[in-house]
Write a protein that binds this DNA or RNA. Structure first.
Lengths: 205, 205
DNA sequence: GTCTATAGCTGGATAGAC
DNA sequence: GTCTATCCAGCTATAGAC
């Protein structure tokens, strides 16, 4: 490694950690005041710099939201794809739903940024979105291991899960009124899907 | 009726229709630009008046949102409680879910104002909220006629319905990808609830 | 009740010195 | 890269003439 490369890496690293500090400050602010209430003035003050300095690291406010989205998507992938203890596919499915609801309810602005479209003109970049796509692929695999591959059933599953999260957040924040229903919820879903298989077991394939 | 009362009624009526015109203009704007993008400048221009005149009819911007909420809640009650054709409780339940999804998906800002909490500091007044409460009471009655009274099952139902709406709106706006699932959805729910009755039929009461 | 005019504030983003 | 100073636009809300 040449001397100039060493220096470059050093500067890159400094720059990266400075960006991270700004993003951290942004998360602290949106957790206090709400996702859409983020302002560059407050952000700069919180990060111990001035407004123009923010623009040395991010092109615009949207770029900051995008960095936050990317971080949230990485956390989502990590949370949902880390190994599951039980072997039973059904237990894995229950555990995954538990993790999903826990992930969403434990950080409200993160959930809003990641799964709702509450910021007026903001669309995440493909790079930032990629981890979330990978996590959703894994979710489909977990369902497949339970014998569920019908697209209609996959759509039902997503509606079930997001409804559970929304009700828990909206009507019992900090509680577990809907979280307690998870076991029954999964039983209901599996019983319905497996009772009307697309490819009846009598058929040879 | 005395002459002064007549005049008073007349003025009240004029005032009422002027307020209604402002609220109508507000709806037109939020349908065009989004619920949170409503500004008093645009609103006044659209209504053919000036900003200060708006304050002759509403104390603040929040008061306008509250009037909109009240109107939306009345529409919701009307839509959900108007008579249902079929006698079969199950068919009524299906029809009510169909109406609910239709109501929510047909007017996105109305749905956001009524069922999500997307406006930063806004809370509806008790008066504006009242029709929505009445409609939800009727919903519980429809479930009761299907033999469903367990609070856990009622919570499951609300999660099911709101999840269906959210997925339809977020992932297939204008389409019917989740609406098509309604029949299966209700079958799944009823089969689950009635299979594990709280008061088993073997017990004498 | 309706207007003109404007106060008072906050927002994102930039110019230019250092 | 970081600052001071500032621009320009938007917002809610009010003062005061008519």
């Amino acid at each position: 490694m040449s001397k100039t490369e060493e220096v470059t890496d050093w500067r890159e690293s400094r720059r990266h950690s400075a960006r991270a500090a700004i993003v951290d400050a942004a998360w602290a602010l949106v957790r206090k005041d709400g996702l859409s209430a983020l302002s560059l003035r407050d952000l700069a003050r919180r990060a111990g710099i001035t407004t123009p300095t923010v623009y040395a690291y991010f092109d615009s406010k949207a770029a900051i939201y995008d960095a936050m989205f990317g971080q949230a998507a990485e956390q989502f992938e990590l949370e949902m794809t880390s190994p599951y203890d039980p072997d039973d596919p059904r237990e894995v499915l229950v555990a995954s739903l538990r993790r999903f609801v826990g992930f969403c309810t434990s950080d409200l602005p993160r959930h809003q940024l990641l799964f709702q479209r509450t910021i007026p003109g903001f669309e995440p970049s493909a790079d930032s979105y990629a981890p979330a796509v990978r996590a959703l692929t894994k979710a489909r695999e977990r369902l497949a291991k339970n014998g569920i591959t019908d697209p209609r059933h996959l759509d039902m599953w997503t509606a079930l899960t997001i409804g559970l999260v929304d009700q828990q957040i909206s009507n019992d924040p900090g509680g577990d009124r809907w979280i307690r229903l998870i076991d029954d919820y999964v039983s209901m879903f599996l019983a319905h899907c497996l009772q009307q298989p697309l490819h009846p077991p009598t058929a040879r394939e």
